[in-house]
């Protein structure tokens, strides 16, 4: 009985699109002017340039329940501000990695290039994305999103991501590996600090249960957080030390 009801009620995704004023927003306008038609699931938010889009915006949008996020900018070389879209492209590789690790399907978070004259492309893109996400179902929202958002707000991660926009002075592969490991560390550490903030002092065991991380990994993070002056000991519980935010 329940199954029947499910198939009758079609899932209608909500897709948020960040479109840049000069290219993709204009492309979407052109789709309208040309009277193309596409599914009504998309909501456009205007920005001046895709370079504007902070990774935390993408994850906040997912965390708040969007089933998909589309970032649409100018084709490489056409950015009104010269290289905003290039920076977005590089930034997107980090966003994508974090999203993949969170278990967010690649069809849900996309970066595409749509020029002001590509009303048709915009239309096709919206149709494709809506259909794909319809198939996938609602966004399986993951608590890790909050930790991911915090990680992408951290100076440590933002600095190494930002540096890669300018110049990488060591071997690219090694740099990227370092950024990825910093990303993981920061996401996991923020999950820990978040748990401590919300629930007060916790043991390694409790943190492992809440975060789903291996206890030995929690220990590793606790030692680093301790060294950085973020946590310290707050007594004992069940033959374990309690840790608290300083």
């Amino acid at each position: 009985m329940v199954k029947e009801k499910k198939t009758k009620q079609k899932f209608e995704p909500t897709i948020v699109a960040f479109c840049c004023n000069w290219c993709s927003y204009a492309g979407a306008d052109l789709a309208g002017t040309s009277r193309f038609e596409y599914p009504p699931n998309i909501r456009i938010i205007r920005v001046m340039c895709t370079g504007r889009i902070d990774p935390t915006l993408v994850f906040e949008t997912l965390r708040m329940g969007a089933d998909g996020v589309l970032i649409a900018g100018c084709h490489p070389g056409d950015c009104h501000y010269q290289k905003g879209n290039f920076m977005m492209e590089k930034r997107f590789s980090y966003i994508k990695k974090a999203a993949d690790d969170m278990g967010v399907e690649p069809e849900r978070v996309r970066l595409e290039w749509v020029s002001a004259s590509e009303g048709g492309k915009f239309t096709a893109l919206v149709r494709e994305m809506t259909e794909q996400i319809e198939q996938l179902g609602p966004n399986p929202m993951i608590q890790k999103a909050s930790a991911t958002i915090d990680a992408f707000k951290s100076q440590r991660l933002r600095w190494v991501m930002g540096r890669s926009q300018i110049k990488v002075d060591i071997e690219e592969v090694k740099y990227r590996q370092t950024v990825d490991s910093i990303m993981h560390d920061e996401i996991e550490r923020h999950a820990i600090t978040r748990a401590l903030k919300e629930k007060g002092p916790l043991t390694v065991q409790e943190l492992a249960e809440i975060s789903g991380l291996q206890p030995s990994r929690i220990v590793r993070h606790i030692l680093a957080l301790r060294k950085n002056g973020v946590v310290n000991e707050a007594g004992e519980k069940d033959r374990q030390l309690l840790y608290q935010l300083i």
């Binding site: 390694v204 065991q205 492992a208 206890p215 220990v219 606790i222 310290n232 033959r239 374990q240 030390l241």
Partner: peptide
């Protein structure tokens, strides 16, 4: 900080 915890799970 001088607290003896074991590496696998932080237990005392």
């Amino acid at each position: 900080g001088g607290h003896l915890i074991r590496p696998s799970d932080g237990k005392i």
